[in-house]
């Protein structure tokens, strides 16, 4: 396992938003890698930089945001060094992305078929007929009943779950090596959520994709990912194989996240919460971003950002006081 080559390797990624009130670093030196056939789950609260990270990999950060440092390596090639036209060749073909809102992520004035065909025709030298055949094949692969009919439908004629399936069909139509799923199940009903997650896992095996799965739902993460990366304030807090992370969380933030989940069969009057809120962009502590909410905080946490330390071969944590607090 250790001598495998990662499909996607992100190193010291840094993104900055140049706001009127001054530059704000949304992602501060994030590194991770995803191997073929592996799912990396990225968890964190709203505003922790997880969506910006996925948009950065696609180089789709809108103004005034910019990637200001680091490397994004796809099979060893640095995507940040590619000219725009070549990056367009990568987008949709080698790296595909699925978004949170299936209701708004599809163009309302084009049919499902037109939208999938368009992507296939953009990246592969195929005829219109072949593209159409591929689209219908993809639609049936993602479990859409009577795909020929749905091919000619407009997005508004499909339910939310069906639209997300269509989005998946579109994302996978060019057999990408990396799939970035940005909260793909958040907007769906729980039953549909389960179906979509199952579909994800089947398709991932089929295409041997590296999947970057972003969510704030720990239940979803535990189900789909092989490894988990916990983010806070644009930095990594902790990263470990899923089982390990759930059984042995080291970072106080991870532990707090775990504690705020309701547990089945255990009645409590109030759910646990993490004290305080994520600070405003310019009010993050100078040291550890979690310092103002951490139960174990000491002076050094406020002053110096904690280095990333190895707990076990695949388990890293950025904290001065790791370990379970019980």
């Amino acid at each position: 396992m250790e001598n495998r080559v990662p499909t996607l390797k992100v190193q010291n990624l840094e993104t900055t938003f140049f706001l009127k009130s001054g530059p704000f670093r949304a992602v501060k030196g994030l590194s991770y890698e995803i191997f073929p056939g592996e799912t990396l789950g990225i968890v964190g609260e709203s505003g922790c930089g997880k969506s910006v990270t996925s948009l950065a990999v696609m180089q789709l950060i809108d103004n005034p945001g910019k990637i200001t440092g680091g490397q994004i390596l796809l099979d060893g090639q640095d995507l940040l060094k590619l000219p725009t036209a070549q990056m367009e060749d990568v987008r949709g073909a080698k790296i595909a992305m699925i978004f949170q809102e299936p209701m708004t992520a599809l163009n309302p004035v084009l049919t499902i078929g037109q939208q999938i065909d368009e992507q296939v025709l953009r990246h592969e030298k195929v005829s219109n007929d072949e593209a159409r055949k591929r689209s219908i094949e993809m639609l049936s692969l993602v479990g859409i009943p009577s795909p020929e009919e749905r091919y000619g439908n407009y997005p508004h004629q499909l339910s939310g779950g069906m639209r997300q399936r269509a989005m998946i069909a579109m994302a996978l139509s060019c057999h990408p090596k990396v799939l970035i799923a940005d909260e793909p199940t958040t907007a769906l009903d729980v039953t549909i959520q389960a179906q979509i997650l199952e579909l994800f896992q089947t398709l991932q095996k089929k295409f041997n994709m590296a999947v970057q799965f972003i969510t704030h739902d720990l239940g979803v993460i535990s189900e789909v990912s092989d490894r988990v990366l916990v983010m806070y304030g644009g930095q990594v807090c902790e990263s470990a194989p899923t089982q390990e992370l759930f059984n042995n969380p080291q970072h106080p933030y991870t532990a707090a996240l775990m504690n705020s989940r309701p547990k089945l069969g255990q009645r409590t009057k109030r759910l646990q919460t993490i004290e305080g809120t994520v600070p405003a962009p310019h009010e993050f502590p100078k040291g550890c971003p979690f310092a103002n909410r951490c139960p174990k905080v000491t002076q050094i946490c406020w002053d110096v950002p904690p280095p990333v330390t190895q707990v076990s071969p695949q388990h890293i944590v950025a904290c001065y006081h790791p370990g379970v607090q019980k």
Binding site: L60, E88, G92
Partner: peptide, 9 residues
Amino acid sequence: RTAKAKGLS
């Protein structure tokens, strides 16, 4: 954004 993510010009 979806259209951009598809690699369209």
